[in-house]
Design a protein around this nucleic acid. Structure first.
Lengths: 196, 196
DNA sequence: GCTCCACTATACAGATCGGTATACATTGAG
DNA sequence: CTCAATGTATACCGATCTGTATAGTGGAGC
């Protein structure tokens, strides 16, 4: 697994887990720079001492937040993909999973994209988590397309990537109703014309 | 024009113009919350007094930043659209314009999407600028599609919107090379199958 | 010549930022 | 029983945050 595991070394004691849960919620809702450690500590019912004993720095809390979210998403998606048989069904399952995930976890769009708006420096330890997830998604789409129509796998995979990414943005900005479902329908139409 | 003009009432004196230019660059590169007014003043060669005399608050600088960017983008796009004749060519011109704009102005993706990551409160005065631009783009795509295939204008317009939005994200996160050109090609394929 | 206006320079206020220090309570394992 | 780990509570550090106050400069128009 390439979940950028190399970055997660924090033992999540109960207080640390509460802190990370609060931090994640606040980071996502208000933005990373807008949330201070005092607020995280207060919201989690934890002292700053405990925060710094467990995480060492705010930056590390950010890393744990993104790495945790990335890991949970990959697990969530993998379970949904395993339930499907054909590559076509698996592609559609990605959109269905994304839709379910977004409806209950991501009213403001992709946490990686949003984090990238605030973390521009490629030297930031959270940077590879962000770009890594997008690369992984592209490879996933492309890999599935290789089982459908090998000759156009790259092109198809990229198009699915754009549809998917665009749907997440449209969902976050409420551009129109249920954009992820729309993206799924378009993906199906795209795949219907391909292969065999 | 519905450029959310109602919000722009600041007279841009030379110093104010310099300040806004510096603020815009810094906001886009580092994020809005990560940039303080002292830095803006220093970078623009302007005192904080002048900043607050012209803009009144940091929030207003943010509003001017986004409103200005929105206005420039719409002007830029309108010029490129006027040069094209058929609705099909106009749709492709949107992607071409976006590509040119992104290459010289937006290495980090759409400034509206990035701002939305930090401004979640719908009551924020900059909020309607963000959502307004996305709505405007969707209406633009849909309107052009109505001249191509009226019966499927809504569906086609939304798909183009997702492709376009996804391409901007992919461009900003460097997911693969030249995603906006790829989106353009997919849009052309989509339109080739439609209408007439 | 005088007034307006845009601007500079500097100092400061009050709050909050990330991060540290000291002191003490609770808990489970050897 | 002891010891280490985990936690709480609180006070503090220097830096930075948005925003204000005071004082003064230089040019354009009447």
């Amino acid at each position: 697994m390439s979940t950028a595991e190399g970055l997660r070394r924090i033992v999540l004691t109960p207080a640390a887990r509460r802190a990370l849960e609060a931090a994640g919620r606040l980071f996502y809702e208000r933005g990373i720079h807008a949330v201070g450690v005092d607020l995280i500590a207060a919201e989690a019912g934890v002292t700053k001492k405990t925060l710094y004993d467990r995480f060492g720095s705010k930056e590390q809390i950010v890393v744990e937040y993104l790495a945790g979210r990335d890991e949970r998403w990959r697990t969530f998606l993998a379970e949904r993909l395993d339930a499907e048989r054909s590559p076509r069904e698996r592609v559609l399952a990605v959109f269905d999973a994304s839709r379910a995930w977004a409806l209950e976890n991501s009213p403001k769009g992709c946490s990686m994209v949003n984090a990238h708006a605030e973390i521009s420096d490629p030297a930031h330890p959270a940077y590879p988590i962000i770009t890594g997830q997008k690369q992984w998604m592209l490879d996933l789409f492309t890999g599935l397309c290789a089982d459908i129509e090998p000759g156009r796998a790259d092109r198809l995979g990229r198009t699915l990537m754009l549809l998917h990414e665009g749907a997440l943005v449209a969902h976050g900005l409420n551009v129109f109703a249920d954009p992820i479902a729309h993206a799924r329908d378009e993906a199906r139409a795209l795949l219907a014309a391909a292969g065999e």
